[in-house]
Amino acid sequence: MNKEDFYLRLVNIAINDTKLTELEQQLSNNDLDSAFETAHALKGVYSNLSLTPLTIPISEMVNLLRNKTDTDYSKLLNEEKTQFQFLCNL
């Protein structure tokens, strides 16, 4: 397997991952600790795959969740979901 195939395989794994849905659920339950863990993991994956449009909103969420900031995460989450959908449609 060459580097490109390897990369595409990993991107495919990321696309089929359910963590973004989990994050949405945790936020709606106001479970900020779990949401932080999930967002943190997603940030790692997306940044490692250089998926910059996905990395920007999730990084912002991680920073807010680390401090357990009680705010409306829906805007950032929607942005993340839009970018994720965009990736899936590629």
């Binding site: 990993l10 794994i13 990321a14 993991a41 994956v45 490692n48």
Partner: peptide, 8 residues
């Protein structure tokens, strides 16, 4: 625990 990060 992240498969992608392990693999990378």
């Amino acid at each position: 625990d992240e498969l992608i990060e392990r693999e990378m």
